[in-house]
Structures are given as C-alpha cells and as structure tokens.
Design a protein around this nucleic acid. Structure first.
Ligand code: NAD
Ligand code: NAD
Lengths: 229, 229
DNA sequence: CTCTAGTTGTGAAATAATGCACAGCGTGAA
DNA sequence: TTCACGCTGTGCATTATTTCACAACTAGAG
C-alpha cells in the first residue's frame, strides 16, 4: 500500500474528481471493474497518469482485473470528501447565481448550498430554489451559525474584491470565484477563479492556431486535444 | 524584438487574456504605463513570468518606465484576436445558456454570439437576448452560412457527446464545453471543458487541507494561493 | 502445471513551467 | 556629465508534471 498522507497535487485532485464522477456512471451501468486505460480516455490522459493518480488514493488495482469500481470510488471519496457534508454559501443571486444554485442543488452527497446572499432588497428575504436569501450584511453571522466552509462568488466584478474580504473575514476557507477578476489574498484561503471570458478567448485563439497540434513525432493517437479546464 | 511566430503555450495564452482585460481597466483609469510586478499581482505570479509572457507578444517594455499600456494591449490583441470578429454559437439555451448569453452579449470587440440552438420546440424560433434560436437540426446549415468558428456548449451531459460530433461535423473549430463530461475527439478541434463540479469539489477539498500551503522555506510573500482556473 | 497475454505499480527519463539573478539600459537627480 | 536606482530581457537553475519502460503479478488456456 502506498504512503497515505502525501501531499496531493492540485492537478491530481482535479482528475480524481473527474474519475469519481465517471466511476459512478459506470456503477449505474452495472460495471464492476475498470482498467486504467479506460479511465485515461476520460481525462484525455495516459494510462500511466491514471495509475499514478490512483496510487495516491491507496492504489489497489489488481493485475489483469483492473480496479474495482465500488472500492475505488469509495477510496476517492474518503480522500476528497469529509465525514460531514460541507456547507456552502452562494454570494450573488443573479443570472449566473441562480443557474448555479439550480445546478448544485441536485442531490449532492458531499456538500450542500445552505444559504444564499445578495444585497438587492428585492431578493433578500425571499426563498430562491428552496434556499433562503439573506442580506449580504448577515454574512458573518450566518457563516458562523451554519459552519459554512466554502463560498461560491457570483457578484459583479466590481464587488468581488470586497466580497472576498468579507468572506475571509467571516471565516470561509475556500472560494470559487466566477467574477472575471483574479483576486489575491495573503490569508491561506483557497481561491479558485473560473474565468469564462478567458476560457472563451482561449478557445477562439486555438480555433485557428491549430498549430496547437504540436502532436510531435510519436503519434500519440489516444490523446486528443482537450484540457481539463 | 523577440521571435514572432513561436508556439505560445496554453498557459501563456490564458494569462495574456487576463493581462489584456486588466490593461483595459487601467486605460479607463487613465494610466498609461505599467510595470511587470503590477501585472504579476493580478495573476498571482512573479514579475519574471509576466515579462516572459510579454516577450512573446513582442516585448516592448522600457527600462524604468515599464510597458506602455495602449501599445501592449494592442499587441496582445493582435496576437490573440483575428482581423475579423469571430462568430460564436451557443448550443443549449437553458439556465446556464441564457446566463452565458446575457453575459457574453455585452459589447465584445473580438467575438459575437450570432446564433443559438436548442432542441426544445418551445425555444426554437424565438428570439432570446436578441439572438435567434434555431432548431438544433439547422446546425450545419447555419454554422456554414454564418461562418461560425467556435461554439459554447451548454446542453445536458447526456447530449454533450453527440452535440460535439455534430459541431465538429458542422465545421466548428473550437468548443467551450460546460457539460460535466470530458469529451474526446481525434479531430484537431480544440475542446475546452469548464467543469464546475470539479472546481467546487476541488475548492472544498482545499478548504481544509490548507496543507495545500506548501509554502516552502523561501517564503514567497507575494504569491498567494490562487489559480487561474 | 506451464505458458501467454495483459495489467498494475513505480523508478527513472523526459518534458514543461516557473523562478532566480544579473547584465544592460533609461531616467532623474546632482 | 556622472551616478545611482529600478526595471526589462533572458540564460540558467529549479521545480512540477508527464511519460516511458519494465519487473512483478494475475487469470485463463491448454
Ligand atoms: N452570467 C454569466 O453567465 C457569467 C459568466 C461568466 C462570469 N460571470 C460573472 O459572474 C458574476 C455574476 O454574473 P451575473 O450574470 O449573475 O450578474 P447579475 O448582475 O445578474 O447578478 C449579480 C448579483 O449580485 C448581486 N450583488 C451585487 N453586489 C453584491 C454584493 N456586494 N453582495 C452580494 N450580492 C451582490 C446583485 O444584486 C445581483 O443579484 C459577474 O461577476 C459576472 O461577470 C457571469
Ligand atoms: N446551470 C448551471 O449553473 C450549470 C453549472 C455547471 C454545469 N452545467 C452544465 O451545463 C449544461 C446545461 O445546464 P443547464 O442548467 O442550462 O441545463 P438546462 O436543462 O436548463 O438546459 C439545457 C438546454 O439544452 C437543451 N438541449 C437538450 N438537448 C439538446 C440538444 N441535443 N441540442 C440542443 N439543445 C439541447 C434543452 O432543451 C435545454 O434548453 C448541463 O450539462 C449542466 O450539467 C450547468
């Protein structure tokens, strides 16, 4: 068995999340075992990379039979999740916020959006997608009461910086930021920015320059252009 | 002057997009010059990295005065953009699709969402956010007619794979995929997946393990945890 | 039982990305 | 004019990440 408490790289965490989602789909289909090369296709990686990732969660592939799906899924969950379901807040219940709320409100096993916040008086106090919308000035109070560890930030770019300050001040430990603004902090709160404008500009850029196809001599036929993010 | 037609790395393209957006904000504020260390803060990188990125666009910094904002912004645009505004399609006008449509419909200089597609009869034929919604079976026709190079994919995960096939078949050259499904192709169409579930799970993971703070001996005080994506 | 085919786990090599550190230059002060 | 300062451009070191390649193992066929 591999070393248990190694530091797991960000990239690996990303892929583990993707593996797990796919494993659950395979479970539904009734499959019980899976090979590294099958998982590799999903993240457009190599079998070796998959095996490396899976080693970090306790590597128990079986030669010739591959990995047992149920076990593997559970092991990934043990690593990624926490014993208690995590409470998440949504800040900014605008167009994107509402879409996210609907999306993440599906039955998730490991987290739950338990509160939303906005500073628009029309929204505060209402119940949106089954979640109470609080006024933004209640942030610290509610985050403390509900033990919220993570926040999804979907406020306008101008408001983002202050919102982050408030969130950190309120005790949140990670922020998933959708505002097109890359925010810095010197606390050790984890900030993950999803910059869709950047992503689209990048896609447009590579739509032409498919010189991007560096596809060197060794004809890697399984890896097709794609990136996880 | 640096070599012009080098292959520019994906990461660099991402950062260039972010730099440019920030440069435009600075322009509005009336600033005319900027230093690498100022830009570095924005992407939570180092000044050296910024300079390296900027060299690829023709490196025009002036000792002691930094970079001229107008010039730099134009140079990045010349590199990232194309002479003609690019036409983009949106596939799937659901909750997320509509939010994206509103968001990207703002006056963008370098691209424009010119058509949307859905297979829900209630939506087809209507005008949504000022854009005509076509039936999905019109895809190939419209993509050809309107010279659409890039597509934003916001259909349910089950439909994503086929939609990608159709898009590639229709001649699209890049896809920004929001379905939580990592899609593979052996064409050299660029597929960029934005996997929000993964991003949130990752954020939740690092909300606790702030052992993530590997912050080794050399006390990097300016770099704060953050990632571009 | 033996052999073959196919898979895992992993050291080591290769590649990619980042950061350091300094030469060289422009600017402003004296 | 001269000098000190601070910034750029960049070779090189460092670190992170991916890939190769192979020994060890398992199952199944004969
Ligand atoms: N809509 C999209 O598809 C999309 C895509 C990419 C990025 N974004 C970004 O996501 C963010 C939200 O986008 P949107 O389209 O939902 O905008 P929106 O204007 O529809 O919603 C913003 C919401 O935030 C609320 N708000 C403003 N300041 C606040 C504060 N200080 N505290 C709490 N709430 C506050 C507003 O009342 C509003 O309800 C923006 O930063 C936008 O740039 C949106
Ligand atoms: N809503 C979110 O915030 C969110 C967040 C992350 C990811 N996603 C993903 O984005 C996608 C869209 O999410 P949503 O919330 O907008 O879902 P939605 O159900 O509201 O919208 C999906 C739309 O796609 C249309 N559609 C279905 N099949 C189609 C096809 N073959 N061709 C064209 N159109 C088709 C449907 O008619 C519907 O209008 C999903 O894959 C979802 O997992 C959504």
């Amino acid at each position: 068995m591999a070393a248990l408490k190694q530091k797991i790289s960000e990239k690996t965490v990303e892929r583990l999340s993707v593996y797990r989602r796919h494993l659950k789909e395979l479970q539904k289909k009734g499959k019980t075992r899976v090979y590294s090369h099958e998982l590799a296709q999903i993240v457009a990686g190599t079998p070796a990379q998959v095996r490396r990732d899976l080693m970090q969660v306790g590597g128990n592939g079986c030669s010739s039979k591959g990995y047992e799906i149920n076990l593997l899924s559970d092991e990934i969950s043990e690593l990624l999740d926490y014993p208690e379901k995590q409470n998440v807040a949504l800040i900014g219940v605008g167009n994107l916020g509402r879409a996210l709320l609907g999306f993440f409100s599906g039955s998730r096993e490991n987290f739950d959006i338990v509160a939303t916040f906005d500073n628009d008086p029309d929204k505060c106090g209402r119940i949106i997608c089954g979640r109470r919308c609080y006024n933004a000035d209640q942030l610290k109070k509610i985050v403390g009461e509900k033990k919220i560890s993570t926040a999804i930030l979907a406020v306008p770019a101008e408001a983002a910086e202050n919102a982050v300050k408030d969130l950190i001040d309120a005790g949140v430990k990670a922020i998933l930021n959708f505002a097109p603004k890359h925010i810095t902090t010197n606390s050790n709160v984890f900030i993950q920015t999803i910059d869709m404008t950047m992503a689209l500009e990048k896609a447009i850029y590579f739509s032409h320059k498919n010189t991007y196809a560096k596809e060197s001599q060794h004809e890697r036929n399984r890896k097709n252009y794609q990136s996880t993010f």
